[in-house]
Design a protein around this nucleic acid. Structure first.
Lengths: 129, 129, 129, 129
DNA sequence: GTGGTCTAGACCACG
DNA sequence: GTGGTCTAGACCACT
């Protein structure tokens, strides 16, 4: 369910955060669901507990989770909020890429066609993992 | 002509490389044109010469420029090659973003519409800088 | 009558102690009155009995209550003692805050005015809960 | 200039943050001034670099400082912003304490007199440390 | 058992 | 030199 790519230049703790956000967005983790404990997850992923802790702290800081001392970490966000904020972020990146594509004089239709391809390739199946 | 954002998390030497690539793509730097000297650029941008050097080395490693000992660095690529490699890279990023947008269940048409907006917003003027 | 804020960084057992102290100070709990049993309170507040126990033990250690084996916990303090110790504690915190306000160069009169506001806002009604 | 109380229940990294905020507020650290490096401060205070790092990261997250990779951490805030946010925070604590003092039936004038005492005791001299 | 904090020591990319 | 990340292992308060 949670996968880490050690070769990725993105830090492990960020990958962890992304993984958990995705689980929440997909509905695999619902509001007030408990996250795996720091130690347990550290065990499963063979990662240092401090790294998990850093990811959890940051998630809490972002208001996506909350923690109760001695009890664990729990999901705070509902899907709607998280989705809209993620969507906004992705559109921002899309703007940057579009800007560069324009400078490369790549025609608008070619980009849209690519989008179409990606959508066909990935459509469905995502919830079955 | 070359702008650096020190607060950007992207390393300065990468920003430099991107800037130079863009200049080549736009036709501001043609094949066999000489790049500004390390010292001169370091002076203008108030950047450590090592950083300029690193960018130049990397550009050379990528085959985009070549250097002549004691003479300087020069543009090697023709536009066609550079454009296609940049385009490929951007399409790769586009694939990643599309994948995430699909998981967010953002409709294909909404994404395409956004692309359209960005194209309208940036069209023209970009080549005059 | 007793309210717990699970998200507060202050430990639950301390919140419990504060709650009980307040009840005693307000006269809702008199000398030799019996405190609710650990089990009952744990039930009502949906809190781990160990946590209640810890609060009660600490209250006893502070001489505010006493316990009779097999019978329960009872109020020991009279109002006068408790009030003066609480008052001293609050004045201590006030000293700390004043010190920081002085460093911020907040004028003495502005602070006093704020105190006045708080007193007007909370005056009356508080004893009826 | 920076003092840590190891017996304080407040974490070291928070004490560090408070110290630095105070330095900024007092004008000892101005906008774009460089903070001591993580390693240097760790050395001076005999504290683990990771702890310093945590404090610096949090300060940066709060927008009080910014960091340039490979160069150091620098002050971002100007006095005005920081002061007003700190002031607001202190008044919040003051409200809590006032509320409790009211319940203890401590007369408003006694509190104001205390404030007066604290102000007389601490006035001046703070900038000479 | 839980999360929160801290130390010690290491490696990396960047300038 | 700098900050950023990670590991390993420890202690604490709280439930």
């Amino acid at each position: 369910m949670i996968t880490i790519d050690y070769k990725d230049r993105k830090p492990i703790y960020e990958q962890l955060m992304d993984n958990i956000k995705t689980l929440i967005i997909r509905g695999a983790l619902l509001r007030d669901d408990q996250l795996p404990s720091v130690r347990q997850l550290a065990n499963e992923l063979a990662i240092n507990p401090n790294t998990i802790q850093k990811a959890y702290s940051e998630l809490e800081r972002q208001g996506i989770t909350y923690s109760l001392k001695g009890r664990g970490s729990f999901v705070a966000s509902n899907l709607v909020e998280l989705r809209s904020s993620q969507k906004q972020l992705l559109f921002g990146e899309l703007a940057t890429i579009s800007h560069e594509l324009i400078q490369l004089e790549v025609p608008e239709d070619e980009v849209k066609d690519k989008i179409g391809e990606f959508y066909q390739g990935n459509k469905g199946g995502e919830l079955d993992d």
